[in-house]
C-alpha cells in the first residue's frame, strides 16, 4: 500500500497539542463556573476563591506535565 499521508517534524509537538486540549477545557470550566459562583453568592468569595485556585493549580499541573512528558520518554527510551 502506498503512503497516503505523512507527518514530518517532531511528533512531541502533536503530543503536547493533544495534551493541552484537556487542561484548556478544564481551565475554562473552572473560571467560568467560579465567576458565576461569585456572581451568585458574593459573600462566599473567600471560599470560592480558595477552591478556584486549587482547581486551577491541579489543572495547570496537568498541562505542564504534558510539556515535560517528551523529555521523560526521551530519557527512558
Amino acid at each position: 500500500m502506498s503512503v497516503l499521508a505523512e507527518v514530518s517534524g517532531n511528533v512531541t509537538a502533536i503530543g503536547y497539542g493533544l495534551a493541552a486540549i484537556g487542561p484548556g477545557i478544564g481551565v475554562g470550566i473552572i473560571f467560568g463556573q467560579g465567576v458565576q459562583a461569585i456572581a451568585r453568592q458574593p459573600e462566599a468569595y473567600g471560599l470560592i476563591r480558595q477552591n478556584m485556585l486549587l482547581g486551577f493549580v491541579l489543572t495547570e499541573a496537568l498541562a505542564l506535565i504534558g510539556l515535560v512528558a517528551p523529555f521523560i520518554f526521551q530519557g527512558i527510551a
Binding site: 485556585l53 486551577f56 493549580v57 495547570e60 499541573a61 505542564l64 506535565i65 515535560v68
Partner: peptide, 12 residues
C-alpha cells in the same frame, strides 16, 4: 493566578 504557572515550572 498569574504566579501559578511560574511556581509549577519552578517546582518541576
Amino acid at each position: 493566578m498569574w504566579s501559578v504557572p511560574s511556581y509549577l515550572l519552578a517546582g518541576m
